[in-house]
């Protein structure tokens, strides 16, 4: 199994244990215009290279993780718990 993700709670695991849930983008506030919500829900940049994604560790600790990786080489730069990374950015 080539793609290994090191979960901060469970250790190094194969990617089959996870479910990839898409890009990490800031959620607009509830009073934001429809346009901003449309962008948040549907529009993605799809860059080549370094990318931040939500990964759900479905078969392990069932926590949401933020995986910072290169989507071209699959080099993983860091994995943090989504809650911790949200608290860190506040």
């Amino acid at each position: 199994m080539a793609s290994l993700i090191t979960c901060p709670h469970c250790g190094t695991r194969p990617k089959e244990e996870f479910s990839v849930r898409g890009a990490v983008i800031a959620r607009p506030s509830a009073s934001e215009k429809d346009e901003a919500w449309h962008r948040y829900v549907y529009v993605r940049d799809n860059p080549k290279g370094r990318y931040q994604e939500y990964w759900h560790h479905a078969a392990g600790c069932r926590r949401w993780l933020v995986v910072n990786r290169d989507n071209l080489t699959h080099e993983v730069f860091g994995v943090t718990d989504a809650q911790a990374s949200r608290e860190g950015s506040r």
Binding site: C10, G11, R13, P14, E16, E17, A58, A59, G60, C61, R62
Partner: peptide
């Protein structure tokens, strides 16, 4: 890596 006393959830075939 997985010492006696250690435990964790993991995928076993297709079952968690």
């Amino acid at each position: 890596a997985f010492a006696p006393g250690h435990s964790a959830n993991m995928l076993f075939g297709h079952v968690a």
